[in-house]
Design a protein around this nucleic acid. Sequence first.
DNA 1: TCAATGTAATTAGCCGGCTAATTACATTGA
DNA 2: TCAATGTAATTAGCCGGCTAATTACATTGA
Lengths: 175, 175
Amino acid sequence: MDFSFSDRPNDERIKATLATAASSSDSELTTLFLNVQWTYREMQKAYDRVLDQHHLSESKFILLMFLERADRHRLQPSELAEKLGATRATVSKLLTGMERSGFIQKGHDSVDKRVVLIELTASGQAVLTNFLPSNFQAVDTIFAHFSKPDQQALTGLLEKIKQGTQQLNQENEGN
Amino acid sequence: MDFSFSDRPNDERIKATLATAASSSDSELTTLFLNVQWTYREMQKAYDRVLDQHHLSESKFILLMFLERADRHRLQPSELAEKLGATRATVSKLLTGMERSGFIQKGHDSVDKRVVLIELTASGQAVLTNFLPSNFQAVDTIFAHFSKPDQQALTGLLEKIKQGTQQLNQENEGN
DNA sequence: TCAATGTAATTAGCCGGCTAATTACATTGA
DNA sequence: TCAATGTAATTAGCCGGCTAATTACATTGA
């Protein structure tokens, strides 16, 4: 596998976008914005590779975590969807794949016939247990160069981005 | 549209993950990691909404930018793919959609019969010109709460994440 | 009590990403 | 010169996200 960096696409975007920037402030903020996107996407790709080595995707991993902590290792698809923050349709697809992989089993609720009960299998348990150390290791590596103050600084800056995002949503309310 | 915040899914992930953390350092870094993901994804969703109001996706917008700057407003699909940093297959799909929308036209190269030439249409031009101010406005809003030092600080922290990402890739080389 | 309404899950069909396979043409070198 | 190899683009088929429609069952209230 070739992970030698090609930052070229990012540079191309910056070049193209800066040519249309009206002010130097626009230029700086746009560069920063593209930098945030690029950094996140490279980070996520690297993290996804770790997950893939364990035959997992991020969402599937999170679903296994929820099941692991649930009473009797069982939850309804709708409960999983709400915890995950995805639609029921998406979760339905993910669960189909996880059943095929043998990570979960589907069962029926005795009371409400509409309900499906998703149960963690031993094999799903094992995959999760195996992945967890790699997960923390990956996060450690990503933030290897961070000092304590760096962590706090980033937390503060993320908070400001969240506020800006909320404003952007308000500006565009009513479609 | 309802943009009232449900941070619940993020909280659920943090709760579930922290329960399995070995050290307090793991806890802190994992929380920070989830926070980075959450913040980016909310920001991107808001930005995508702005694009969608102009019948664009981010990749389509970038492709229009490349064409706008190109000699005679023309590029080959393979050139666009390399600049964009996506596969030719992906770009092929995007271009099909953009042709349907009337943003581009496909033509033939007189010399090399394998080559397709993508040309920006007047309508594509117009959509781009119209979107650009909204684009800068969106970026401004996202970073509305950032001071100059904040910008510099974030740039530095992103650099550290990039370094960590590269290390993570090295650790997982040869899968 | 049963028609109207609500709810759980899935399916169909779209988007934008990917890899692998295919098609068509161009280039190269013995 | 033409077989082997390279290259441009597309297509097939997968993934994980979405909305809208559908199916099947549960609840409610006149």
